[in-house]
């Protein structure tokens, strides 16, 4: 249990290496859902298809999510300087932006649902909801993690010299963002362009 990084074989903290390893697995998780979605792009069974996406709206919420990566970096940076107050501020900003994104997703799901895109409408609908829903779940877990980071840094469980904890959650958060870049492009943008053609 020596967590002193100097004693690890690769010179990386166990927890950080563990997070990297886990994220490697996550890529395949989303990869499989994305392939299913691509297979079912046109399989709408008479229900709504990709034309119901509201690109400007989702672009804005995507932008908010991407910006949260910036505040996450700033939070980690503050933590490496031992500045827990500023770290907490940026953590709050990150979690807030994540919450805005989630709110956008809930709103969007509501709109689609009222326009007739239910989970059981078509394979397209199921794969869309499950793929983006799983991403939303990951954002939600990320917000929980950030919240815990915030609270535990107040109680003293996370100390000024333990920036690896912020870094680890940062890795997860950046992953969730990067996956959204892929999902937004593949799920929303490319099919829309294909429809316009």
């Amino acid at each position: 249990m020596a967590t002193d990084v100097a004693t690890t074989t690769l010179g990386i903290d166990h927890r950080k290496l563990g997070m990297w390893t886990f994220l490697g697995s996550e890529f395949l998780f989303f990869g499989a859902f994305v392939s299913a979605y691509l297979l079912y792009l046109d399989t709408t069974a008479g229900g709504p298809g990709v034309e119901i996406f509201d690109i400007p709206f989702t672009s804005i919420s995507s932008f908010v999510l991407l910006m949260s990566s910036l505040t996450m970096v700033l939070a980690h940076h503050a933590h490496t300087k031992g500045d827990l107050r500023r770290m907490r501020l940026w953590i709050l900003a990150t979690a807030g932006q994540g919450a805005v994104f989630l709110g956008g997703q809930v709103f969007e799901f509501n709109v689609f649902f009222r326009e007739g895109l239910e989970l059981s409408t078509s394979p397209f609908a199921t794969s869309f909801y499950i793929l983006t829903g799983f991403h939303g779940l990951h954002v939600f877990v990320g917000i929980l993690l950030l919240g815990s980071l915030y609270v535990l840094s107040l109680t003293g469980k996370i100390k000024a010299n333990q920036d690896v904890k912020t870094e680890m959650i940062g890795l997860y958060w950046h992953f969730v963002d990067i996956i959204w870049v892929v999902i937004f492009t593949v799920v929303y943008l490319i099919p829309e362009i294909a429809v316009l053609d």
């Binding site: 299913a36 079912y40 399989t43």
Partner: peptide
């Protein structure tokens, strides 16, 4: 869900 439901085009 309709992932594998042939009736709606699932594969």
């Amino acid at each position: 869900g309709q992932f594998f439901e042939p009736a709606t085009g699932g594969d």
